[in-house]
């Protein structure tokens, strides 16, 4: 609320009606993510982190509270908030290049198309050899790279990602995490990622929002400033650092407590 730039979520609540009963999915969540930072929504399954992300995207409406992006109220989906989904959502009838160009095409953004934006982002995710391939010819990791390039090529002010690498094998997931960090650092994107993977949350996030469940509440906000002192793109140094280990154990305990409540 203090800075107009970036994402601001204030006092968000969400209730569902199911079978005559009212279920409180999210309760009084307030957080802010400054422009140019990577934020992570972390929590056990059922904590409503995906619901929160979808509300930021405008795909669902909050029951209470308000969301603003760079000072503007969010109440429907828009070009300013691009989203990468867990399923590798490429348009199967479009080539990789046309998939990446899709957002600019439907917005009639001739300038960006003429400036070579599409090729720039295809190169950024390392798919230049596959620009003319169709999605069904690509692996899951490559298809997710298409989705990332398509989202970034549209120049959103905020990039939303819903467990983007959850269905990938570990090796590919690590590669994708580095690739994502490299691209968004270069483009200075503001990013909000949902994950339930602690390592991924700490590796990607400048700030990690830990949500509890039933109902989903913001339990703790964790800053990962310690990474500034570490060499970039060095996963081993990251995993071996004192701070990482301390935070990992801390979050693991938070997760375990949540599990105990549910059992």
């Amino acid at each position: 609320m203090l800075s107009a730039q970036g994402l601001s979520v204030s006092a968000i609540g969400k209730t569902f009606r199911s079978g005559g009963q009212t279920v409180q999915a999210l309760d009084d969540i307030s957080l802010s993510l400054p422009a140019g930072k990577v934020g992570v929504l972390l929590g056990p399954s059922g904590c409503g982190k995906s619901t929160l992300l979808r509300m930021v995207a405008g795909l669902e409406k909050p029951s209470e509270g308000a969301i603003t992006l760079n000072g503007r109220a969010v109440n429907q989906p828009g070009r300013d908030r691009g989203m990468v989904f867990q399923d590798y959502t490429s348009f199967p009838w479009l080539s990789v290049r046309s998939n990446v160009a899709y957002g600019l095409e439907i917005n009639g953004d001739r300038d960006a198309l003429n400036e070579g934006t599409v090729d720039h982002f295809i190169r950024a995710v390392g798919l230049e050899k596959f620009a003319d391939a169709y999605p069904h010819q690509l692996s899951g990791g490559m298809r997710q790279r298409v989705a990332i390039a398509r989202t970034l090529a549209n120049y959103p002010e905020l990039v939303l990602m819903d467990e983007p690498f959850g269905a990938l094998d570990p090796e590919t997931r690590w590669q994708m995490q580095d690739l994502l960090l490299n691209v968004v650092r270069k483009e200075q994107n503001t990013v909000l990622v949902v994950t339930h993977d602690i390592e991924e949350a700490l590796y990607l996030g400048d700030v990690v929002f830990f949500l509890s469940r039933h109902p989903g509440r913001l339990k703790e906000t964790i800053h990962t400033d310690f990474k500034a002192l570490l060499p970039r793109n060095d996963r081993e140094a990251f995993l071996q650092s004192e701070d990482y280990r301390r935070l990992e154990i801390h979050i693991r305990r938070l997760m375990r407590d949540e599990g105990r409540d549910a059992a």
Partner: peptide, 14 residues
């Protein structure tokens, strides 16, 4: 038509 394709297009400004 998969809902997620529709939502992808929405978040791209369609």
């Amino acid at each position: 038509t998969p809902r997620v394709l529709i939502e992808t297009a929405k978040t791209l400004g369609g």
